[in-house]
């Protein structure tokens, strides 16, 4: 099923009607399942209406796979029920944590990449995949901090998780750009090293500069169009690896649906360019 996916759009409530009406080859939609883990009512009905017409991707933001605290078994069961109900084409989560002994925090938090962390996260991913009954894709998060104690390179860490658990990888190109800028590494070189054969999905999004620190710190804000530098990194990846199901994410300053479709067309043109159709992108 995933073979039929071209470029998809993050789905916002204000675009549900547009999404149901939209007709385009390979179009799909992605949502955060957390907004739809309900017993019934319109939140499920909307999603099922979209699902009847388009492939769907569930992109979780709260499993806390990198957490020291155990996974929230009740949350995982609710997520599994939604997966059974919607039969999404893709299911993904982040290499991050959000759950701690005192509760849960709505962010994708960093951790030192130690071997102990690798073993713990591999076990968590395996547990999640067992309950969900399918492999999931793990996304590289945005980085802002220089953390002490990293023993593993991030790409090698992700690769090892995939080797141990059979999970795939979600390459977020905007996160690579943001992290490279903030931590001072070469985004192009990083993209070139990323194991293309493990990538089941690509994310593209906009970012912003920090309101206090300005250009010194980029924030993965998803509130702007995809930046030229991110398009360039995407082209670089696609030219090496070929097209993958690709998502345009937009969570803030949400523009009219037509503007998102225009960004989608840009992504489609880049993918077509790799396919040998140079004129499509010219």
């Amino acid at each position: 099923m995933a073979d039929a996916l071209a470029t998809g759009l993050g789905l916002k409530p204000e675009h549900f009607d547009d999404a149901v009406r939209a007709r385009a080859d390979g179009l799909w939609f992605e949502v955060h399942p957390e907004n739809h883990l309900v017993a019934g009512g319109p939140r499920l009905a909307w999603l099922e209406a979209v699902r009847e017409r388009h492939p769907l991707s569930l992109h979780g933001v709260s499993l806390s796979l990198a957490g020291e605290a155990p996974l929230d078994a009740a949350h995982l069961r609710r997520l599994a029920a939604l997966v059974r109900r919607l039969q999404p084409a893709l299911v993904s989560e982040h290499l991050a944590w959000s759950r701690f002994a005192g509760g849960w925090l709505p962010d994708l938090l960093p951790f030192p990449r130690t071997t102990q962390a690798l073993q713990r996260i591999a076990a968590r991913i395996a547990q999640a995949q067992d309950v969900l009954g399918r492999p999931i894709a793990i996304e590289n998060p945005s980085h802002y901090l220089r953390l002490p104690g990293h023993l593993w390179d991030e790409i090698e860490f992700l690769q090892e998780l995939a080797r141990r658990t059979g999970c795939t990888l979600l390459l977020d190109v905007n996160n690579v750009h943001v992290s490279a800028h903030n931590l001072g590494f070469d985004a192009g070189e990083w993209i070139d090293r990323f194991p293309a054969e493990l990538v089941s999905e690509v994310h593209l999004a906009g970012h912003s500069t920090d309101p206090v620190l300005g250009d010194a710190l980029l924030v993965d804000s998803h509130d702007a169009p995809v930046a030229p530098a991110v398009w360039a990194l995407y082209r670089r990846f696609v030219q090496r690896a070929g097209a993958r199901p690709t998502l345009i994410e937009r969570d803030g300053n949400v523009p009219p649906f037509a503007e998102l479709l225009a960004e989608r067309a840009t992504a489609q043109a880049i993918a077509a360019c790799r396919a040998g159709d140079e004129e499509a992108f010219a």
């Binding site: 925090l105 709505p106 901090l145 220089r146």
Partner: peptide, 20 residues
Amino acid sequence: RDVFAQPAFAVYRNTVLKGC
């Protein structure tokens, strides 16, 4: 302390508090 002293720590704090 060296992690919390980085100005970028505020990005996480702002995201968490704003999200809640």
